[in-house]
Every structure is written in structure tokens, then in C-alpha cells.
Nucleic acid binder design. Sequence first.
DNA 1: GCCCTATTTCGATGTCTATCGAAATAATGC
DNA 2: GCATTATTTCGATAGACATCGAAATAGGGC
Lengths: 103, 103
Amino acid sequence: MKVEKAAKQLEALGNPTRLKVYRALVRAGEDGLAVGQLQDKIGIAASTLSHHLHRLILTGLVTQERQATTLICRANYPAMDELVSYLVDECCLDACRPDERAA
Amino acid sequence: MKVEKAAKQLEALGNPTRLKVYRALVRAGEDGLAVGQLQDKIGIAASTLSHHLHRLILTGLVTQERQATTLICRANYPAMDELVSYLVDECCLDACRPDERAA
DNA sequence: GCCCTATTTCGATGTCTATCGAAATAATGC
DNA sequence: GCATTATTTCGATAGACATCGAAATAGGGC
């Protein structure tokens, strides 16, 4: 993963509203949550939520699937896994895995 | 860890320049790097670097220690460890540790 | 084809961010 | 206490962001 991509994803998660959205989606699991359900949970204007979702989708952290008139949002686990791996491998190796310390 | 604190730290890392700074500091290990060395590595104005360092320090991800006229910067590993733990435990449990899946 | 619900896009606004150069501060050595 | 080096603070500027309400769009049922 390039540093720019990682930074983009971190920036996407680095907003309390978006982190709450992402957290809610993770907790919802495979069923995901409709945009409207997210709005109820988080309590912001629909347009604002749509904007934040757009940013999360652009970075690949969230996916959407249409079911009739509602849009189901889901956390894209592999993307987060890749991001955490980047942080651990590239940025935190010494602290988290002393025995794997690189040259 | 509260969601606001995690978001603040993610936001701090969610800028390419700051992520490069942090990465350089991690790679420098316990010796750390002087502000001037960081500036040489990254190639931005001293004032800009100072601004970014300030943000990283405010979130606790970086520490500074003065050695004579130079300021040594170091990555604060426990902070990153805590942040990654938050992401894994609160936001990525299902994907990363299926056997520890919470209720 | 029209209505209803769900969601996005538009337009506007205030706040925050990144960046720079210049000037100010800090710490040391002489 | 002055010069030197290292770093921060100041002031300015251009661009990005978060937020809202209103209007537009999408999809489906009648």
C-alpha cells in the first residue's frame, strides 16, 4: 500500500462522524445498514451523511448495494485489514512485533 | 479509547506529509530524528514541518526531547498500539479475529 | 403514468487546514 | 553578552471540509 492511499483512508476514518458510521457498519456485520438506519443511529442530516458515505466509499472502506429503494451499506473488511496491516508493518513494527524487527 | 480520540489520531495520520513524518520516526527507532533531519528527509519548509509535528504531538503519537539546541522527535509506540487495538477491537473484530467475535 | 419512499446533488456558509517566508525565540559556545 | 544554529511563532493566502435545507433523482407499487 502506498503512503498516499493509507493517508486517504486514515483521513476518511479521522472524522468522528465517519468513524461512528464505520463502526456502526462493522457492528452491523454482513447484513449492513441502510442509509436511513445509519441516519437514525447517528442523527445528522441526510445530505451530510450522504457526503460522508461518499468519502468512505471513495477510499474503499465501505461498499453499497441497492435493495429496491434502499441502499445497504457494508464495511469492507479487507480494506481495513490492509490498512491495519500497513500501519503495523510499515509504521509500528518495532512496537508491536519486536521479534520481527526489520533491518 | 473514545471515538473522538481515535478520530483525532487517525486524522493526524491521515495526511501524507504527517504519515511520512511518522513513518520516518518509526524507522528511526529509539534514536529518533532531529527536526532538521526530518526536514531534510521530507523536504518541506521548516515552519510547515513544525506545524505538522505539533499536531502529531498533540495527539500523543509523537514525543519530543531537547538535546542541546536540537529537538529529537520519536514515535510514541504505545499510542499507535492503542490506536491499532481500537481499530481492531472496535471496528474490525469480525474481519481480523473471527474466533473472538463479540455478541 | 403517478405517487411514495429513500437517497443524492446543489448551493451556500462558516470553519479548518496546509503551506510559505519572515521574524522571533531557545540553547549553547565562546 | 554576542554570534550561531535549531526550531517555533506570526501573518497571510488559497484551498478543502462539514454542515444544513431545498430541490432533484431513483426505484418500485398501484
